[in-house]
Structure formats: C-alpha cells, structure tokens
Design a protein around this nucleic acid. Sequence first.
DNA 1: ATAGGGTATGAAACGCGTTTCATAGCAAGG
DNA 2: CCTTGCTATGAAACGCGTTTCATACCCTAT
Lengths: 319, 319
Amino acid sequence: MANIRDVAKQAGVSVTTVSRVLNDHPYVTEEKRLAVEKAMEELGYYQNINAIHLSKGETRLIGVAVPFINHSYFSTLLNGIADQALVRDYNLVFYQTNYQEQEERKALEALKRKQVDGLLILSRASGWEAVDEYQEFGPIVVCESSNHTRIPCVSVDHYEAFRFGMRYMIQKGHRHIGYCIGRMNGTNSNLREMAYCEELEFIEEPYRKDWVFNNCLTIEDGKRVANEYMSLEERPSALLITSDQVAAGFRMEAEKQGIRVPADVAILGFDNHPIAEALDLTTIELPLHEVGMSLVEKVSSKNPTSAIYPFELVERGSV
Amino acid sequence: MANIRDVAKQAGVSVTTVSRVLNDHPYVTEEKRLAVEKAMEELGYYQNINAIHLSKGETRLIGVAVPFINHSYFSTLLNGIADQALVRDYNLVFYQTNYQEQEERKALEALKRKQVDGLLILSRASGWEAVDEYQEFGPIVVCESSNHTRIPCVSVDHYEAFRFGMRYMIQKGHRHIGYCIGRMNGTNSNLREMAYCEELEFIEEPYRKDWVFNNCLTIEDGKRVANEYMSLEERPSALLITSDQVAAGFRMEAEKQGIRVPADVAILGFDNHPIAEALDLTTIELPLHEVGMSLVEKVSSKNPTSAIYPFELVERGSV
DNA sequence: ATAGGGTATGAAACGCGTTTCATAGCAAGG
DNA sequence: CCTTGCTATGAAACGCGTTTCATACCCTAT
C-alpha cells in the first residue's frame, strides 16, 4: 500500500507538505494541496492509523473494563458511555473481565502501554492500590461511589440511595426489612450493606442473616429469592432488591405462589428499568445513562474529578 | 520513557536481542536474557503497543459495529463475542452506530486503516456494496442470515424461524395472525416479512396492514402494541412478536386490560430471554451467545465462511 | 531602507518494536 | 579435513505519519 512518501514523490512535494494537507494545516498553497490530493487519489492512499498513534502518542481510544455486558446495569452505563464517546470522537475498547483480577490487569496494562488514552472501570475486582499504581500512565475513572482521595470516581450514591430506600420502607411502617445484593459491585454492595445495618440499628432491629439474599443479578435470581423467601419461617414484610430485574423476577414468582405484593411483602427495586414500569414496581431511579456520559467526560480531561449523581424515588405499586 | 534501544544499551546487547527476549525467541543465551531482564527492570521498561502494531501490521483488535448496546439481543451477542475474543486473545473495539450509515462507515474505515484486524457488523444500515468494497482490507462478518455470495454471514435463520413460528400458530388452529417487527435488523425484518407473507398465502389469508406492528424493540413497545391491538375493530387471534422483551410488554399490558393470553390472543416470542420464562411465554430460542462466539471464530480466520445456527421452539403457556 | 512577522516548504529527526540479512562459532556427518 | 546445519548475535532496514527546525520569500511598520 502506498505511504505518505509515495504520495509526496508522486505530487512532487515533501512528506511534510503531504502531512500538512492531511491535517488541514493552513500553510499549504492551493496548488500544492490539489497536487497532493490528486496524488492521493491516484495511489489510493489512506493513512495508517497505527503510525499516527505511534507518532502522536495517543489513540483516541478509551478502554472500558466491565465484568460482563449482558446485564442491564452495565449495558445502560455502556450506552451512555458510547453516546458520549461518539460526541467526543473517541472509540471504545472493551475489556470483559468477568470479575477476574487478571483481566482487569490487562485493561490497566493497555493504558500503560498506550493502547488507550484513558480507562473506565465499571466495576472493580482488584484493589485500589492496583488501580492507583497505574494512574501515572493516564486518566482512570472508576464507576463507584467511593470518596477515594486519589482515584476519581463517578457514580450514583449507592449508600444514600439505599439508606433512602430503607427510610422509605420504615416510614411506610415496615420494621422487618430484608434485602438482596448482587455480587457484582463489591464496593457498592458494601455501601448498601452499611446503609442497611445503620438503618436497622436506627430502628433497633437485629440484623438477620436469613433476610439477606446474596448473588442477585438476574430475573432468575429474583425467582430463586422468592422461593427462598417463602421457605422462611419468619418473613420480612419488606425487601430492598438489587435491581428492577431481580425485583421483577421476585414479584412474578411470588405472585404465582400466592404471595401478594405489596400486601404480604413490599418490594423496592433500583434503576427504574422499563421492566419496573411494566411490573408496577416502585423503584429508585438511577441515572445510569448520565453516569455513563459523565464517565467519558471525566476521563477525557487531564485531571478527572469525582462526581456523584442523584437518585430519585419512583413510586408505583409494589410498596 | 525508556525504549528498546535504551534497554539494549543498558544490557550491553543489540536491540534485536532485546526484541528476542521480549518475544521468547529461542536463540538467546541464558546469560544475555538475564542481562536484558535486569536492564528492563532497572529502567522500568514496557513495550509501546502502538509501535508493535505498526511494525507487525496487526493489532489483535476486532471491531464490532452495533446500533446500540442496551438491548438484550445485541448485548447477548456481544457477550458471546467477548467470551470468544477472550479465548482467542483479541480485544474488541466498539462502534455504536445508531443505524447511521456514516457511523458504520467509520467502522469500515477503521478496518481499512488497520485499526482493527477484522470487523463484525451486528446489524447493517448501509448496503452490501459498501461492505463489499471494504472486504479487501480484512475479514468482515455480518450477523445476518443472508446467503450473500460474497460476504460471510453468521446468524440464526430468521426466515426459517419465523416460518416455523407461523406454521406452529397455524397448526394450533390460528388463521388470523399478526406480527411485530423491530426496526433494528433491516434484512432480518425483511426475511420475517417474507416468511409471514408466504405462510399467509399458504393458508389463503389476506395480508392485513393493521395486523403488522412496526418499531417493536422494547418492553414499552410491547405495551404500546397491546394498546394498539385493543383498539382494532377486528383482532388477530395470534401474534408473532419480535422478541421476548416485546412479548413480555404485550402480555403484561394486555392482561392488565383484561385480555387473556393465550385464550384471547396467542403470542410467540423470540430469543428465549429469561423474561420469557418468567412470564411463561412460548418462544423460539435463538442461540445468540453461540452466534456471537461463532462470529469471532469466523472473523479470525483468513477466509471467513457463512454459518446458520438452528433455533428451537420452547413451549410454554402463551400459545 | 530595515527590522519584524507571517506565509510556505522541505530535510531530518522522532516515536519504537520487528524483521531481514549477514556473520561467526561450533558440532555432527561423511 | 570439509561440508552441513544449528545456535547466537547484531547492524540496518522497515513500517509510516508527525514534528521540529532551518530556510526563504514577501509584506508591513518604523
């Protein structure tokens, strides 16, 4: 394939001039510009992007590390990320980590080796130190509501959202409250756990291990929880549930088995996914699309800062 | 940052030897290998990946053009793609096209300019000619069940699946059959339309425009269709519906309004998404995860071939 | 008339790892 | 003793666009 030097020769100019034409530099006479364009046309020339990457030292690529993609939480975030990346003329490279530290490391290495100009970590498996260690190689933003001093985080305030959900249930008269947690977001899960415990303490109720359901990510998990719920000797009267997906599975299965929502058990989902509206689920809306867009904004600046996005209660008929 | 020449100097060897160490070439004595490794350590050396890309002429990156990501059809495909990419040590670059021909073109240009070694097009906005034109620059695989002679396609046989669905309804005694179509997959939609028309002809029923619902992609769309359905003077007794998501929305809304599924209207979804099980939807299962994996397999070979994946009826309680 | 400043252009260096080719030592085969 | 054929190693070329720096012309301001 023809390269820039071939074009220069063909057009009778220097490579510098060809480069100027390619980059719309003003100091090129119309005459030479035309000659260069003609030569490019004749030779079927196009730029080798890797040479550009190498010489410019940037790729206009943003890496995104995500555990898996077919989950509405992440795919909604990704949608926001992709929309904003389009606006800012970035492309995205995708690292599916499956929560493997080693895969996450690959994403970090890609930053170090300049494969990507910046990195977004949607959910973390490795420790803060590991992330911190790579900050010198480029901007990293983590989608987590932590106030880590050295690493920029952009997310919804999961802690406050969960606390708000708890208070909402309490205000509705519930004292026996359980909750579901996904394995997916270590930190976020911890925050929710914290909020849960604190509010329990506030109403002076004990923490009951059998009212905490782990590994809740999908509709099926919700169904599973419904069954576990029914086999409990003593049942909570309210549940905060990881996500609307899980809440939907719970509601469908529970109602199939004759448990009434919200009469027998009140449930509160998170996200405000379309399925929540469809199933008349009260939920806490998380602006994930916006968070996604913000992540890209932050990571494209030299010095990303943290940001917390607000949530909003959407009252429907499940509480 | 230190480069390979610095390392060579520090270790007292040639750059070639350093390169050999980096690439595990056998012709390096243990002694020099250690010297090189020591030098790399001391200088904090790591390879610049863009230089590798440039000199090797490949990037181990596969481009994926997809209209949008937060839709289970695409995110399931992507999940399969990502899983297989991991196995084959490829990374993915993501082109969110929103069905804009111009964005799709960017993905094709990325192939031409060697940003990616191969390209996967999950749904096409531009014509075959446009795609064909870029084949000389690298392997392209389209996720479409077309038997285009010049462009490899890997997908489910949407035509046969839809025909099968029609026959299933017919065999169940239905004569008045409508269907929903998403805007998303031009070709696939056309295939479904074809299958629909042919089967209607077969049972000698007329094509009724008001029994065809367009733009059906999400749960909300399903709800909308349910409302449109109810406002029909004459209603079909069966519907084939774009996807389980849409079918779910339809079922929930219809039942809320007092229409019984399947007594009043039988519905058949596609995909066998978890939501189908949750809502007891009869559906045609499409092996999207496998298709995704296959797409990567195909695109990583020099000469990709086409493949069609089988579907499977999952009988539940909506027909 | 001259200094200053913008316009225009090209040679050469730069970013950096890989690969080809030449060279040389050394052991096995004949 | 000589030819093969490895093993080892390095110089130089290669992939290719960008950027710096030097040069030169021309116009305006002093």
